[in-house]
Design a protein around this nucleic acid. Structure first.
Lengths: 194, 194, 194, 194
DNA sequence: CATGAATGAGAGTTCATTCAT
DNA sequence: GATGAATGAACTCTCATTCAT
């Protein structure tokens, strides 16, 4: 595949992402992509054979970008509380961008593939738990946090984030609601200063 | 609508529920329902005009039944901790019945209707928060619980439950994982005996 | 399936047969059938799911009719020579109706399904051989025929008929050519009167 | 067209022949050829514009080779019976190579072009008849054969060969079946030694 | 000469929905 | 009320063929 082809593939992926963000997964047809990209039916099939292949490619690309962002942001930080705050802020930003993320498409895809016990989602979730657990333990060590069950707390945070994510796509969620819960979580970890 | 018609409508609803449980929402066609009910295409349309109408009717019926169950179970209340434990046990049971509930259909339907800010889900969630908040406050009053922010704690529990619910439908969840988190939640509320 | 449906199915089969006669097998699309029948795309699918299913149904029906015809014609038997002559006349008629038979479609279908060792064709061929063999033997017994190898002669006739059939569909064949060969065959069996 | 071009054209023909042998005619697409040859789509079109053009070129080449073989083999023979036996042996070999010949493609092509009264097949058939007729006459002259109708016998043999050829591609044929019929034919010609 | 990306026509198939009976 | 045949729109996917490079 030549340079030009790669560019086109990239262009299709970017356009497809917009479509998935807009319409989720099940509602997206190859025709939708074709029209969004303004290319021919056959032209799309040169690059991708199905909406599934497209979504997986979009997610893969997205995961790569996110990894980059994540690695960058925590490289320059210092205290555990600061890092956790930063992490939660990122999550909040993502959550509130509800018309601009792939959450719905991902969940719909996962529903379609329940049998496959989608490993990608599980891995991302577990990775989040591990990072948080480490962070909390390091906060305890530095005297910033108090927590009797770091693993439970880490899971708690991840479940809450999942819960807010799905709520943001279904019943809707406001910034105030997110802030309230994130503050509750931080308050539960920080040593009371009294 | 005569007695016989009502029975038939009821029969369709029960059969449709099984289909929604099995296949979610988007994947269900009127044809699926027709075949599952073993009635004629036209016959189905006499009662329901679309899968949306069907799902909403199924959910309405379900909600009624659940309310009944809920009211029953808390009628014989003892302590706040007992009630909360009972509530969480119910939620756990529901969660683990992952191949036998409407969660996926409900979420899929909500995705389809993001714009409508689906009031039903919001109402159910808020009702859950209110009940939990009351419960926690009564637990505090009775000296069973310690909690500085009952509202935050109630929201926390509901978000966690949402998170576990969606996880159970996507990446899967085990009983151990549910137990661990529910214990973590209870531990955070109960007065430490030391 | 009601009476009316059966009629329609029958109508589709008859129309499809004309199309297969006209265009063979591979060149026939569901669209062709739909247009020939002047019904809707979906309407055709109510009765037949593919051109393969259609062709097999056409052939089945044809085989039934042929069986009837065959049974009738040999019911009023006189001499072996007469029956054989009648048989060959029938074959000739079929052969020369080259724009009005399913030969091409059948062969094309057989080509598509070489692996399946199409049993229908084999059975028909073998049945033909058996009938001819019996006939020749009875002719020998009655003193009409002379033949040292009835089985070989029967096979010879069937192969010649196959050969003429395929030739009629490819390079073409004239009545004179058929007559010439059929006379040659009869001459080989009849006791020379000299 | 340069030397290199001729080589490439030759290479394409050889590869295409394999494809036609494998898949017949109708099932072969330009894409199949392109992929089998591992050349570019446009590249193929520089040499051949359609599968029809390709098949005709393959057949032409094949016919040339066969003529060569045929001329060679009969150059060194002596008696009519020997030559006929040799001829039938060749035909038998070809017949039984059922997964390795162009028969199916040729017939399929002929079906597509019934209107054109394909001259090539007719010429080949007629040439076969003439050769056999001459052979039989020469056998009669030399006292090897007895036959009252050499022309009829020649046609009989050619029709039988056609019949076995088509059978080998559809219902299948075994070596024993071929041998049986070829022996029957030879026996019909040879002077009985008794 | 050669490449291979691009186009668009067309085939197969499925369903929501209607309507005569 | 109930049936189920019928319609037609919509989607998926495949190729022959062209054309800029």
């Amino acid at each position: 595949m030549g340079e030009k082809s790669l560019q086109k593939k990239q262009y299709i992926l970017e356009t497809a992402k917009k479509v998935f963000v807009e319409k989720g997964y099940k509602n997206v047809t190859m025709k939708d992509i074709v029209e969004a990209c303004d290319i021919s039916r056959g032209g799309l099939y040169l690059y991708f054979s199905s909406t599934e292949e497209l979504l997986l490619a979009v997610l893969q690309q997205d995961a790569d970008e996110i990894d980059d962002v994540f690695t960058e942001s925590i490289a320059e930080e210092d205290s555990a509380a600061d890092i956790l705050t930063l992490f939660l802020k990122e999550q909040k930003k993502e959550l509130l961008r509800k018309r601009n993320n792939l959450t719905m498409a991902v969940y719909e895809y996962a529903f379609e593939n329940r049998e496959k016990k989608d490993q990608m989602l599980r891995r991302q979730f577990d990775a989040g738990v591990r990072v948080l657990e480490k962070l909390i333990e390091s906060g305890i060590a530095s005297g910033e946090f108090y927590c009797e069950n770091p693993r439970g707390a880490a899971n708690n945070i991840m479940y809450v984030l999942e819960g807010m994510k799905i709520n943001s796509q279904t019943m809707g969620i406001t910034e105030a609601m997110v802030d309230e819960q994130l503050l509750y979580i931080m308050a539960g970890l920080l040593i009371d200063i009294d």
